[in-house]
């Protein structure tokens, strides 16, 4: 392959990835855009968006949803993986298979099933944020699982826990003083992945709760019908947030490589 061709490939990939974002950014500050380039530029759409209470409320709900999902994921994953790696290593394969299931189920099936299950007693949770948080936690689990499981695998948790136990630490102290600090970088990077997955969740949210408890992606879709420029501004904001979190997660991974062993 010639050097030219290699560079052309890289350039094509770069354009494919970045052009839509650049276009969104341009659209969010365009007065009107019918030709190749916008006719003029303005910050009006951004100002409108930032003054809109509906935007801030939906952003708040999305933040609440995402943080709850991260907290729940970590709360379920860390002790479970600890117990599995320590006492039931044979179950690890089953667990991994189970965490892939949310990928297999289309969101519609999940939503319809959840709504019909939780529409009546004993747990009347349909159309409440609680059901949404629980459901989004489940579909975000695969992302967090990978990162946390890798952290457990890299640190030889079993031997570390045995060392702690031989020094008199019971399971709770072992978990709190040894295991958790050791896998923390992996847990945080898994948390960031779960956060991103929950932050951008649309399909399930729309079906489960829709505008009753409007999250940022749902609001964005609503907004796109009336104000495309404002919607583009949200896109840019979301990307910036995702990048920031992503770079942070990557830096945690790098630290983890040094501190583990």
């Amino acid at each position: 392959m010639t050097q030219l061709l290699r560079r052309a490939l890289l350039l094509a990939l770069g354009l494919y990835l970045f052009l839509p974002i650049l276009a969104s950014l341009a659209y969010s500050v365009a007065t009107s855009w019918t030709a190749l380039l916008p006719e003029g530029y303005t910050l009006k759409h951004w100002a409108n968006l930032l003054e809109n209470q509906r935007f801030w409320l939906s952003l708040g709900r999305t933040a609440l949803l995402s943080f709850s999902v991260v907290a729940l994921s970590i709360f379920f994953l860390v002790p479970t993986l600890f117990v599995v790696r320590m006492y039931y290593p044979n179950v690890a394969g089953v667990l991994e298979f189970l965490t892939l299931w949310p990928f297999v189920f289309p969101g519609v099936i999940l939503a319809v099933g959840l709504i019909s299950l939780y529409s009546g007693p004993p747990l009347q949770l349909a159309q409440t944020p609680f059901l949404l948080i629980a459901a989004v936690t489940v579909i975000s689990l695969p992302y967090a699982y990978r990162a946390v499981d890798n952290a457990f695998a890299a640190a030889d948790i079993k031997t570390l826990a045995e060392a702690a136990r031989s020094l008199g630490a019971d399971d709770a102290k072992t978990l709190a003083w040894v295991i958790l600090p050791t896998v923390l970088p992996g847990v945080l990077s898994g948390g960031v992945l779960a956060f991103s997955a929950a932050f951008g969740e649309f399909a399930l949210t729309q079906l489960l709760i829709g505008t009753l408890w409007e999250t940022l992606p749902v609001y964005q879709v609503q907004l796109a019908r009336t104000d495309g420029n404002g919607s583009a501004a949200i896109t840019v904001l979301s990307f910036l947030a995702a990048w920031g979190l992503g770079f942070w997660a990557l830096s945690l991974r790098k630290d983890a490589k040094v501190s583990v062993i």
């Binding site: 570390l160 060392a163 501190s259």
Partner: peptide
């Protein structure tokens, strides 16, 4: 049990 154990892989607490 109050045993002291030394492992092949050291198993020092990295944190």
């Amino acid at each position: 049990r109050r045993v002291g154990v030394v492992f092949q892989s050291y198993a020092l607490f990295p944190n």
